[in-house]
Amino acid sequence: MPVVELAAVTKAYQDKVAVHALSFRIEPGQMFGLLGPNGSGKTSSIRMMIGITAPDSGAITLFDKPFERSSLRRVGYLPEERGLYKKMKVLDQLVFMGTLRGLSTEEAQKRAVAWAKKLDIAHSILKKTEELSKGMQQKIQFISALMHDPELIIMDEPFSGLDPVNATLLQDTLLELKALGRTILFSTHRMDQVEKLCDSIALIHQGNLVLSGRVREIKSRYKRDRVHIEFSGDESFLRSEEIAEAKNYSGHAEIRLKEGGDAQKLLAEAASRATIYRFELMEPSLEEIFIQTVGGNIDA
């Protein structure tokens, strides 16, 4: 029973088709990545999933039922365009959002304080939102989306604008929620995060689905023709005949082998000239797959 299912969903604004016959499903407990360049239709798809806009055609099911507003109580949403009431105190803001999602005032207060402690913003809970930094405000939004303990968590670019410490903190929180069985959908440009966090992805471009499936399965469709080497010493092996393209980051090289290139030969060449600390033969990264699939047609 999928938590979310889109079946041939289409949405157009005047002459522009934002989403075209989009279909994918998100299974319970999955961390799902919705990928695509700017303007590819990610936000439009998410908005339709939670009823902010309606599809022109196609069907959306949420928790195995056609979309109905009562299902939204089971959804937590962090939009790409962050929005908070700037003049409100943080606690009041969180309690307001919690009660709107069905919590009692007391329960909302209790949960807001607990989350604030967990995300290290308890000291700011009585301040006005406008007095806080952007990163802190993002944490408040994050809490606001999660405090009613939703079964489905939808996050549009959740880590954008965060410093590495806070990005890791939120990432770990999402992983904890996943471990608790929550289903998570997030859209992002950051392929490294997708690769690290997601079980499945859907890649959309110009409103069309161009790639979808489990990350592991998608990557296995591609040949293992990427080599990552950590080394010291003579780097002349990077001009080997086995290599089509090499990027050398002083001691760490990322290599794409030629069609039919032999990784073992390359290893022997490298080992004969330099000291090798790591030699890894792998499929292309999601970023490479993304660029390869979307090609030069990125509008961003």
Partner: peptide
């Protein structure tokens, strides 16, 4: 302030 997006969900 883009609060609508959150509220409309």
């Amino acid at each position: 302030s883009r609060i609508f997006e959150v509220m409309l969900a």
